[in-house]
Computed example of a mutant assay.
Amino acid sequence: MLWPALRVLAYGELGREQAAELARLLGLDEGPRSEGPGEEASLGHRSFTEGVRLVLDLSRLGTTGWLLTLLAEGEPGPQVVERHRALLRDAAERFGLSVVQVDPPRTADEVFLPPPADEGSIGQSWELPFDELDQLWPHLGVRADAPREVKRVKLEAMTRAPRLELRPRTPAPPGRRVSARLRTGVPVSWQARRRVSRTRVRRPVRALR
């Protein structure tokens, strides 16, 4: 089954002829692919083999969104992925598109960060029943082997939420206090949904610098 090994999301205005030129630059065949997730938005694709079966695809999202994807049957080699990372980013930028996200990211500029919430608004709520910082990464959409700078930017984005909500794994027995602690020093003490200020969760960010 085909599954995305690399995705480059970019935004910008492209006319029909420019989109066709972008597809030709990538050596894509005309016509959408007929398999894999997101096939309904596909404009052109190319199938080839480098160790495993691969499909390079160009899709349109809305009026100004473009998704350049490398799909694979199995696990492509790291060198294959990195070569196509450079190829797809270069192609998008050559046509004046703004790259807003690359998945999986390798550098900080490939991480998509939503705009910070207003201080007066209701912040995003996070439940963190973890003992180790490594347990947090999957919940932030970060792979365990992601580069340090990618983890740092994701963690900084989390701490910019107006408030975080922390709870232990299980309810505390009556009359007892249950505490958990991230290895980085963030205290989590049992009170009914105790709110922790942003300043107290900046310690993990400093540890990743």
Rank of each mutant, 00 (worst) to 15 (best):
T64C: 01
R106C: 02
Q124M: 12
W126D: 09
P129R: 02
E39M: 10
G36R: 03
A41E: 00
L71I: 06
T69G: 00
D131W: 14
W137P: 03
H139D: 09
W126C: 09
R143P: 04
R106A: 07
L28A: 11
G27P: 13
V100G: 08
E35Q: 13
Q135G: 09
G123R: 10
P76L: 02
G62D: 07
V153W: 07
A86T: 10
G62C: 02
P78N: 09
P162S: 12
L128Q: 11
P114Y: 14
V99A: 03
P129M: 12
Q124N: 14
E149N: 09
A41D: 02
E82C: 04
L68G: 06
P168Q: 13
A144F: 02
I122L: 15
A144Q: 08
V81T: 09
I122Q: 15
A157F: 06
E82I: 09
R33Y: 03
T159A: 11
E39N: 04
V153M: 06
T170Y: 13
F48S: 06
S121D: 13
E50I: 02
A161M: 12
E110V: 09
P168D: 12
A108M: 10
E119W: 11
R33W: 05
V52M: 03
L88G: 03
E30Y: 14
A91W: 07
R60S: 02
R89S: 09
P104H: 05
S125C: 11
Q79I: 07
V102E: 01
P168V: 14
E73A: 14
L136H: 05
E149Q: 08
E75S: 08
H45P: 01
P173D: 14
P173A: 15
D134E: 14
D90P: 03
F112T: 09
G44Q: 00
V80D: 00
L166S: 13
P173N: 14
A91C: 04
R53V: 04
L155P: 00
G51W: 00
D29V: 15
Q135E: 14
E82T: 08
R46Y: 04
R148V: 04
G74A: 10
V150S: 04
V100T: 09
P76T: 08
P138F: 08
L164E: 10
F130V: 14
L128F: 12
H45L: 01
K154F: 01
A86E: 09
